[in-house]
Design a protein around this nucleic acid. Structure first.
Lengths: 150, 150
DNA sequence: CAAATCCCGACTACTTTAATAAGATATAAA
DNA sequence: TTTATATCTTATTAAAGTAGTCGGGATTTG
C-alpha cells in the first residue's frame, strides 16, 4: 500500500508550481533543486503530467512549466491519478473499467477494497494545490511567530 | 497504491477461517481450494499470521488453522498490518517510528499523506471479520431471493 | 551563434512479487 | 505401529516494477 516516488515527487513538483503560479514559466532545474529531486527523473514524471494537460511547457531559454489551470481548480486526486494510475487498492475495484473476476458480484473482500478506495479518493479529491499553498504559508507564519518568541 | 497478493490472499484466508469459526481446525488445502489460491504460497502468508497470534495452528492429520480470537474481535486492520506492514502511503507517515526526513515539520505533502493514512486506517479498523461474514450471508440471502423470483 | 531549456528513447542496477520445490516434523486414525 | 494427513522451514527463481542514469535532439532567447 505504498505510493511510489512518481506520486511523491510529482506532487512535490506540482505543489512547487502552485507556489510560483503567476510568475511565468518555472524551470525543472529550479524545481528539482528546491524539492531535492533528480532533474532527469523529474523530467519523466512531468512528461506524463504535460500529456494529461496538468502542466503546460514553454520550450527554449527562460522556458519551463506552468500549471495547466489555477491551483484552486486542481486537486491532488487529479495529479495522483495521472502519476500513479486510477485509485484502487486492488485492480478489481479500479475507478474505470476494473478487471473483475467471476466472483465480483458476491465477493465480500471486494466490498472492503471499494470502501478503502472511496475513502482515499475522498481525501485526495477534497484537497486542491491552493489548499496546500495556503497550508504552507500558514505553517511558515506559525514558525516565524515561534522564532519571535524565543 | 496497490495492495500486494499478500494482503488480498491473506484476508481471503482469514475470512474463510471466520466463516468456519467453531468448526475446529480448517486445513490450508481446503482454504486454498475454496479461495482459489496456491496452497504453498498461502503457507508463507499464514506463517506470519501465526507468529503474530492471529491464527493458531494444529499440526498433524485432521489439523489445520483456527482464528486466534473471535471474528468479532479481529479487524481487517489487524490482518492487513501483519501482512503488509504498517499502514502508510509513504514511509515518513508510518504508524510506528516513521522514517522522517529533515523537512518533516513543515512539509505539506506529508500532511496530505497523513490524512490518507488516517482515512485508510479508519476504514480497515472499523470492519471486523464478523462483519464480513454477516455481509456474505446477507448477499447470499439476496441472491436466493432473486433466484426465487425469476 | 551560444546558452538554456524542454523532449525522447534506451539502458541498468536493484528490489519486490509471486510463486515453486523439497524435505522435516507432528499427529490422528487404521 | 504404520500410514496418511498436515503443518513447518528454508532455498530458489522467473518476471515485473522501481528509481533512476545517460546521451543526444529540438526549440527558443539573448
Amino acid at each position: 500500500m505504498k505510493l511510489s516516488t512518481k506520486g511523491r515527487y510529482g506532487l512535490k513538483a506540482m505543489f512547487d508550481l502552485a507556489q510560483h503560479f503567476g510568475e511565468g514559466p518555472i524551470s525543472l532545474k529550479s524545481i528539482a533543486e528546491r524539492q531535492d529531486i533528480s532533474e532527469h527523473y523529474l523530467e519523466q514524471l512531468i512528461s506524463g503530467l504535460r500529456k494529461a494537460g496538468l502542466v503546460k511547457s514553454v520550450r527554449g531559454a527562460q522556458g519551463g512549466y506552468v500549471l495547466g489551470r489555477e491551483p484552486g481548480k486542481m486537486t491532488i486526486g487529479d495529479v495522483i491519478r495521472v502519476l500513479e494510475g486510477p485509485i484502487a487498492p486492488v485492480d478489481c475495484v479500479a475507478e474505470e473499467d476494473p478487471e473483475c473476476c467471476s466472483k465480483a458480484d458476491y465477493c465480500v473482500t471486494r466490498t472492503v477494497w471499494e470502501k478503502v478506495r472511496d475513502s482515499i479518493a475522498e481525501v485526495l479529491d477534497s484537497i486542491t494545490l491552493e489548499d496546500m499553498v495556503k497550508d504552507s504559508k500558514q505553517k511558515e507564519a506559525d514558525r516565524r511567530l515561534y522564532m519571535y518568541y524565543i
